[in-house]
Design a binder for these strands. Structure first.
Lengths: 200, 200
DNA sequence: ATAGCCATGTAACCAGTTACATGATTGA
DNA sequence: TCAATCATGTAACTGGTTACATGGCTAT
């Protein structure tokens, strides 16, 4: 579970309320690790119970903010997690299920879906490129300070480019009619051998 | 939820038991949509209750297999889902949380983790490239038949290359010492502005 | 004999999503 | 006055993971 650690990172950076964290998720880290306010409030409650964060002050003025800050315990926990190895992420994309099983559906709706996704990925890419441009407008010191977060932005950029590249490849192959428009995967393949791409 | 639909795709291709499905997940579709046997058996139970699959035969010979096949209802459900738009996937990678918050941990352990991930991604890439080579050994007809699954393999290849590319970028930047080895993100940044890469 | 594979399942738990809910403040 | 934003929460549900469990068959 990383939400906990994402929160510890954000609060290490600067103390804040649940509401603040939701905002920060939206603008920065949220591009690759999002969270709803419900989750954030629950997690803060748990972290507080575990003494990993503490209430800085219950504000008296009206906006009823509860500002949390990371404790020494929290810092240790974060550092320990950062040193722990984690499994590399495998793609888990419903769109791939759709492509994989495309022959059992309508060809036009698959193409439409692919186009729709291309547009959305293009949009994300442009958004990221703007953030990158903004980053490069900063002075050297600021850039150095935000170097690591910037690298995660780079990951987003590479990812979106990548999606677009692949979608174009798929489109090209389907459009070129080198792929069948109607179901062809035989139900009568010999034996138990499933029809798939696999090792000999 | 796509596990349901992944199962419908696999069973549309060819009837099989829960055990078979787990095998097929391992070798093909599982590269981008995995499932444990527990999940598969539960899902088959539900699909059966919904009349989307049916028991073909309760086998008499010893291996106690329950072979399921997709019903007309199941085929319709799958087709409907294939036509339905879905949200494009955003990355959600704990490694990015680690990089983002890298300054709060130990620099060497971050580098070690990045290297470890690079090796694992390299391994996956090689595995995929072998599958691709095998695909190209097939005759034209077979290739055409497995065209769409092949495209999902392409996605995997692009994804792994991508990871390696990004990891190299990160390594280069960290190694070149252009990034700080110790915590620098000031806790005293002006106002409420969180220290992050964001729009003006 | 025993290890490994074939084959199926239950139960508890954890994380994430969606729905529901409240109430104050600020600006048009 | 009305909409938007600030600010916090509870509850139900869904999907996924981990642990636990059983038993036969096959080859060494």
């Amino acid at each position: 579970m990383s939400l906990k650690h994402a929160i510890l990172v954000l609060l290490s950076d600067q103390p804040g309320s649940g509401y603040d964290l939701v905002q920060r998720f939206r603008s920065g880290i949220g591009h690759f690790w999002n969270a709803t306010h419900q989750q954030v409030y629950q997690e803060l409650k748990k972290l507080n119970a575990d003494k990993q964060v503490q209430l800085e002050k219950a504000q008296e003025e009206r906006p009823d903010r509860k500002v949390y800050r990371v404790t020494a315990v929290g810092r240790r926990a974060l550092k320990a997690w950062l040193a722990e190895p984690i499994e590399p992420l495998r793609i888990r994309d419903a769109l791939l299920v759709k492509v994989y099983g495309g022959q059992f559906g309508d060809r036009d709706s698959l193409v439409a879906e692919l186009d729709r996704h291309r547009i959305l990925h293009q949009r994300h890419l442009e958004e990221y490129l703007q953030l990158e441009a903004y980053y490069f407008e900063q002075d050297e010191a600021t850039r150095r300070r935000h170097g690591l977060p910037y690298l995660t932005l780079r990951r987003g950029i590479v990812y979106e480019k990548d999606n677009i590249e692949w979608l174009d490849e798929v489109r090209a192959l389907i459009e070129a009619d080198r792929l069948p428009a109607a179901p062809v995967l035989a139900n009568g393949t010999a034996g138990r051998k499933p029809a798939r791409v696999s090792k000999p």
